[in-house]
């Protein structure tokens, strides 16, 4: 475990997580959530949990982002709050 790499990815996780809940544009939030999932996937693989990281990459960064984008496409891009 290289701690510089770990710290950089953890910072990006926090930034992507806070960004995903504060950004007004829902499509942007979906993309940020995908970025968050991808960073988490890197963290899992740094910690040696390769199976979890594989699931995170395929479900979190892949499938759920597509679902969010499809939902935004069918509803609205702007949030009320």
């Amino acid at each position: 475990m290289i701690w510089q790499l770990d710290l950089a990815i953890l910072t990006l996780v926090v930034i992507a997580g806070i960004g995903a809940i504060t950004v007004k544009d829902l499509l942007g939030a979906a993309i940020l959530f995908g970025a968050y999932s991808f960073m988490m996937c890197l963290l899992w693989s740094i910690m040696g949990a390769v199976d979890v990281s594989f699931t995170e990459a395929s479900v979190g960064a892949g499938a759920s982002t597509v679902f969010f984008v499809a939902a935004v496409f069918r509803t609205t891009r702007r949030t009320k709050d």
Partner: peptide, 17 residues
């Protein structure tokens, strides 16, 4: 190797998506 039903199923579904 890492992987299994869940991951493979998601990738199969993602190909159709």
């Amino acid at each position: 190797s890492p992987g299994g039903g869940f991951q493979g199923g998601v990738i199969l579904g993602a190909s159709i998506i």
